[in-house]
């Protein structure tokens, strides 16, 4: 009835604080097909992790609140599901990996037991079968001597190996969806390459869909089929990976892509920058949240633009009134940036 495995519609997750509501996720919509790898990209505080936690319904209530929207997983609305259903979905149908594996593993339990626990709970395996499956899983995620490592404790593993254990655990029950929330941010570059390779290959092998959450556009380029760019609790652009990197259509995406130094390009003397800093979500600007930092801003931006497909490319959606490919608009954006920098200069002189 629905071609999507996961369909997030207008999700709103707010946090109540003494100073008012923080609109952490503010009308986020995106979908994941079966077997597809989707990346959620954005800076810290843009709501990408809260989106992931909302899908698992793990946002603590209070202070969190699901203020609106739907999360359809295989046709069922997770926001309306019973706690009992959620328990079978978490770890059973949807697996999740977090940034810091040491914080997620129980330090007093052997890693083997922790993997087997999920298998016994969800698949109703007996202890011997669960142990056998756990050892196979450890082997599949590339842990040497899995029989011996089954009885090891988390502190006896290195960071990369712990992340492998987390992957084994998340995939133990062959979930239909894996959510990886900054899985390599705490790891070194050489280990990051190993782990990304592993996540990508096990997802393909098991036919698992993937939501990869990251702030690193480089990581996205190598692994995702589609990219969803978030800013200040909203989706600002969404496109197939090749399309997004080749033809970004939102000024924020464009700014992100051109402000990172890249090893494959000639070295520039000065990096392009996005002026200002991300907004305070307690007092978000009305209208488009990127407006205060945007050089393409205009009066229309006081109303939040809808996330709609481009006329020429239905799989590419953006939430922006401007057409950043228009040379006239580019020229006036450049003038505006220069004027703004000059004003800043005089303010600090």
């Amino acid at each position: 009835m629905n071609e999507y495995l996961l369909d997030v519609q207008d999700l709103q997750t707010y946090f109540k604080t003494r100073a008012g509501y923080v609109h952490a996720v503010d009308g986020v919509s995106f979908a994941v097909r079966s077997g597809e790898k989707v990346a959620l990209v954005g800076e810290s505080g843009c709501g990408k992790s809260v989106t992931a936690l909302s899908i698992m319904r793990l946002v603590a209530q209070p202070p969190g609140e699901y203020a609106g929207g739907h999360i359809l997983f295989a046709g069922e609305d997770l926001l309306a599901a019973s706690e009992r259903t959620m328990r079978s979905i978490r770890g059973g149908q949807i697996g999740i990996i977090f940034q810091d594996p040491l914080a997620c593993l129980n330090p007093t339990m052997t890693v083997g037991k922790q993997i087997a626990e999920g298998l016994q709970l969800h698949l109703k395996l007996n202890a011997t079968e669960a142990r056998r499956r756990a050892i196979t899983l450890l082997e599949q995620v590339g842990i040497p001597a899995p029989e011996q490592r089954f009885a090891a404790f988390p502190h006896q593993f290195s960071g990369g190996m712990r992340q492998r254990v987390m992957i084994a655990m998340a995939l133990a029950c062959r979930p239909r969806l894996l959510i990886a929330d900054e899985p390599t941010t705490a790891l070194d570059v050489t280990v990051q390459a190993q782990i990304l390779e592993l996540i990508s290959s096990v997802c393909e092998e098991f036919g698992t869909s993937l939501i990869l959450i990251t702030h690193d556009l480089g990581v996205v380029a190598g692994i995702a089929d589609r990219v969803v760019v978030m800013y200040a609790g909203k989706v600002v652009e969404e496109a197939p990976t090749d399309e997004l990197f080749a033809h970004p259509r939102h000024p924020y995406t464009l700014g992100l892509l051109s402000s990172v130094p890249r090893l494959d390009e000639a070295r520039r003397n000065e990096l392009d920058t996005i002026d200002g800093s991300p907004p305070d979500l307690l007092h978000p600007p009305s209208g488009c949240p990127f407006m205060p930092r945007c050089t393409f801003a205009r009066a229309a931006c006081r109303t939040m633009p809808p996330l709609i497909p481009l006329p020429e490319q239905s799989t590419h959606r953006k939430a922006c009134w401007a057409d950043i490919t228009n040379p006239e608009e580019q020229a006036s954006a450049q003038r505006r940036q220069q004027a703004r920098r000059a004003a800043l200069q005089t303010a600090t002189d």
Binding site: G159, T190, V191, A193, L196, A221, G222, R262, L263
Partner: peptide, 21 residues
């Protein structure tokens, strides 16, 4: 191992994956 923000390059790249830690 440094990821490059360009899907075309990433597809063609030959990575030297170091084993172990």
């Amino acid at each position: 191992a440094v990821p490059i923000p360009d899907p075309q390059i990433e597809k063609k790249r030959q990575r030297i994956i170091l084993s172990g830690d």
